Amino acid sequence: MSTPYDLPADTSKIKEFEWDDHYDFPRDLVGYGENSFDPKWPGGAKIAVSFVINYEEGAEHTVLNGDMHSETHLWEAPGGAPKIQERAVNIESEYDYGSRSGVWRLFRLFNKFNYKYTLYAVGKAIEDNPAVGLSSVKNGHDVASHAYRWIDYANMPPEQEKAYIKKEIETIAKICGEPPKGWYYGRLSSRSQTLVWEVYKEMGVSLLWDSDSYADDLPYWVDVPAEKNEKDPKGMLMIPYSYDCNDYKFNVPTGFGSPTHFYDHVKNAFDTLYEEGCEGSPKMMTIALHCRCIGKPGRFMALKRIVEYIASKENVWVATRTQIAEHFREKFPYEKGYLAPGVKRAEASNTINAWPAHKAAPV
Rank of each mutant, 00 (worst) to 15 (best):
K249Q: 06
D128L: 15
N139G: 05
H327M: 05
I84H: 03
G66I: 05
N353Y: 15
D6Y: 10
P341H: 02
S206V: 14
W75G: 06
N229M: 02
H358Q: 15
T322D: 04
E202G: 02
A154I: 03
S312I: 07
D247T: 00
Y263H: 06
V63Y: 02
A88C: 03
S189L: 11
F51K: 05
K249Y: 01
D212E: 08
D6T: 14
T194Y: 05
N111R: 12
Y243G: 04
L74E: 02
L134F: 00
G295R: 15
S12L: 13
K181N: 03
A147Q: 08
M156W: 00
E18N: 13
R299P: 08
A9T: 14
Y338N: 09
K331G: 02
V316I: 10
G337C: 04
G257M: 07
E159L: 06
E94S: 12
D142T: 01
K83W: 01
S135D: 14
I53H: 05
R105D: 11
E76P: 01
G43F: 15
P78Q: 08
Q85W: 05
G342Y: 10
E198C: 03
L106E: 10
V222W: 10
G79R: 01
V132K: 06
G31C: 07
K231E: 12
R149C: 11
Y55K: 03
N251M: 06
G43E: 14
E16V: 07
L106T: 10
E34F: 01
D38Q: 07
A48E: 08
S101T: 08
G133C: 07
E347C: 07
G33R: 00
Y55N: 05
D142K: 02
Y95D: 04
K15W: 14
V143K: 05
G133E: 13
R108P: 04
G280Y: 06
E71S: 01
T260N: 09
F37N: 05
I14R: 15
I175Y: 00
D142I: 02
A226E: 13
I324P: 02
P253I: 04
E168N: 15
P240L: 03
N155Q: 13
Y214L: 13
D223T: 12
K296F: 05
Y263G: 00
Y274F: 09
K166A: 10
W209C: 13
E326A: 01
T62R: 05
E279T: 10
E127L: 14
A77Q: 05
K112E: 12
H327P: 00
L289Y: 08
G123R: 13
A81Q: 12
